[in-house]
Design a protein around this nucleic acid. Sequence first.
DNA 1: TGAAATGTTGGGGCG
DNA 2: ACGCCCCAACATTTC
Length: 485
Amino acid sequence: MTRPPTLVWFRRDLRLEDNAALDAASGGGSPIIPVYIHSPAEEKPWEPGAASCWWLHHSLERLDASLRKRHSRLVIRKGGSLRELTRLIEETGASAVYWNRLYEPALAARDKQLEEQLRRRGIEVRTFPGHLLWEPSLILNKQERPFQVFTPFWKHCSAIGDPPEPLPPPRLRLPERWPDGEALESLGLLPRIDWAGGLREAWTPGEDGGRERLDAFARETVRDYGETRNFPGTEGTSRLSPHLHFGEITPRQVWHAVRPGGGKASGRGEAASAWSWLRQIAWREFSHHLLHHFPHTPEEPLRENFRDFPWRRNSSRLKAWQQGRTGYPVVDAGMRELWATGWMHNRVRMIVASFLVKHLLIPWQDGARWFWDTLVDADLANNTMGWQWTAGCGADAAPFFRVFNPITQGEKFDPDGDYVRRWVPEIRLLPTTHLFKPWEAPGHVLSEADVHPGKNYPLPAVDHNEARTAALLAFEEIKGRPSSR
DNA sequence: TGAAATGTTGGGGCG
DNA sequence: ACGCCCCAACATTTC
């Protein structure tokens, strides 16, 4: 007599290692049935965008392949989560469902309901942490309120000490029979017209790809992270964000992979670099913390006075921004990198976001929507926090009057122009002194470089100084008003 | 995890 | 030698 199987419900934890739900199920000794249920409607209004869907398809493919190496498989279903889980329970005689917790408001609410309904039917439900280092509901300040400033949040969390060591890969006991599943292709995650060439070139979705990226980063890149992280023309960052979003690797794996002092000698600068990167991991935690405690923030500004901000919706300017035709080379380079690869360097994200919100006065929500659809690492918590931060209406936000200068930002952080030349090839022959402001170049320099402003490269959508003044003026309108209830 | 305006200082050219 | 101006370099404040 074999024991009834346990369903391990995969969601955004598309990995076998350091997977608490899978580990607990394998330790329990029951046969394991790995399940994925495609139910984008349950994530509304933030169902995954086009780039995320592309990633998800390949990540599921990889997960299934690794399971098959262990003679297991991923059972794919689509439709309502409760309906499909219930059906699977009936079909397989499963007595338990395990999963790793997610924290976005809509999903957390759905999961809570599911848990109750399954329990009512006598099913054992167990849920596990692991997507984050610290449970958002447990992190509170001395007044038992959520943190709204990053530094005290980080101080509080880092004092807790190192997170537990990652879990080993599981041993999978196989069921006697497999339930039916859908073909991955039937989920329709891949684009109908193939625009994903640039994504394929840039990324290897899946646990193995994430692991390789992490190993390479921990071995080499992290050493100089403090120096190089701000230069989009170099590979100074980890590029782990999509792997973290889909749970192909975990924050505790990355913590233990780069944390200084783990036996191997490292210089002072190297330790500082590693900590400054872990601090970025803590920003990810902070953004989930904020979304958990302020669940309306994907749509509404945290600071209430920003509801009355005199935004100027303008679809043709929005489109120029989306397509990388603003006439500001750094901005255009970033937007084109995003479109081509599904990713953008963080320094450039701040520049293009500031440009949309402060130079064009277009609502940050419009920018957040575009990022949502085009980023392979689109993450509701990170995206929301990032945009509210730039717009000046979020927690610990940059004040609104901090307006990035798209010219000097380019000169500072792309000093040789490598980044701009790569993504805005039509101006690549300009000398670096004029690369970030082609409209100021003398005629003979332009014609020698074959740059014709207004013809083969756009004139600036707005004048920097005028736009800056207009933004400061618009900000005056809401300045005196109360920023929170 | 700004930028620009304004203020201060100090060296050098020059009458 | 001296005052004056210019200006770079740096610091402070303001948006």
